[in-house]
């Protein structure tokens, strides 16, 4: 277990469960500062659960999670967020009932400070003019892709230390996915460590230098991104075979 300063995020034998239903079994991996890691696996492998354990939404039942060298296991999500970890959850990540601007204010006020609030808003609107147009609309009236832009604007304007992005590209048009990945690459250039949870293997591996492949809540592969594709193919092959057996 390396505790050196270059590790941004480390999971050490992490198990987690939803009530009696166990979801993760001794998951271990680590991410170097400023690098990007892809978290891959078929549906239900536990990718989102890893993201939730990292951000504290789901407490680990055993094992340790370290962010920037300090142990965050058992800490509240808000305390972990204040340490510079940002988790963009799968699906809807904005407050439906608040306006676009209120959503941004909520995020910037804490992370950029009260004084930089106006400047941060301006930068967000400059980067995404569409948000400026709809700043007073309720975020719930935005399309899925537009809501994703709100989430991206938050992390682009004030880049976090570690960004856990859960299926950011899910359900988006290919051209919008391009924009999303361009934004992620932009954030990474500015020093943010990326953890990208993804179904689209090629997209994620294009961005990441290392990868973790999950299968049934355990790590099937952890290593350089180049080796992940083959493992992922095996995992999917195994799954389709067992699906076939089940349907007989």
């Amino acid at each position: 277990m390396s505790h050196d300063d270059r590790t941004a995020l480390e999971l050490d034998d992490v198990c987690a469960a939803y009530g009696p239903y166990r979801a993760l079994f001794a998951v271990s991996f680590s991410v170097e500062k400023g690098s990007a890691i892809a978290l891959l696996g078929p549906n239900g492998a536990g990718k989102s659960t890893v993201a939730r354990v990292v951000s504290g939404l789901l407490p680990a039942s055993s094992g340790h999670v370290r962010v920037g060298g300090s142990d965050v296991t058992g800490k509240a999500p808000w305390a972990i967020a204040r340490m510079g970890l940002s988790h963009v959850p799968e699906g809807r990540g904005v407050f439906d009932s608040l306006s676009v601007e209120e959503n941004l204010v909520l995020s910037f006020r804490r992370r950029a400070g009260r004084r930089n609030l106006a400047a941060s808003l301006e930068r967000a609107y400059a980067r995404f003019p569409l948000l400026a147009e709809r700043r007073h609309d309720r975020a719930g009236t935005l399309s899925g892709g537009q809501q994703r832009l709100v989430s991206l604007a938050k992390v682009l304007v004030v880049p976090p230390g570690v960004l856990v992005a859960d299926e950011l590209s899910l359900g988006l048009a290919p051209s919008v996915v391009d924009d999303v990945y361009a934004a992620l690459a932009d954030v990474r250039r500015r020093g943010t460590t990326l953890v990208v949870v993804e179904q689209q293997v090629d997209r994620a591996l294009g961005l990441a230098s290392s990868a973790v492949v999950l299968e049934h809540g355990s790590v099937a592969y952890f290593g350089p991104a180049s080796g992940a594709r083959a493992v992922m193919a095996q995992v999917l092959e195994r799954r389709s075979r067992s699906d076939g057996a089940n349907s007989l």
């Binding site: 951000s55 504290g56 939404l57 509240a76 999500p77 808000w78 967020a81 204040r82 940002s86 988790h87 959850p89 990540g93 904005v94 407050f95 439906d96 009932s97 608040l98 209120e102 204010v105 909520l106 995020s107 006020r109 804490r110 992370r111």
Partner: peptide, 25 residues
């Protein structure tokens, strides 16, 4: 007030608010 904004956000999703670094509880 900002507290009011946080309260409205917490009413919709306490967890989402925590991810913003706000002590939602």
């Amino acid at each position: 007030t900002h507290l009011g904004l946080e309260m409205r956000a917490a009413a919709e999703s306490s967890r989402l608010l925590e991810l913003e670094g706000v002590d939602a509880p």
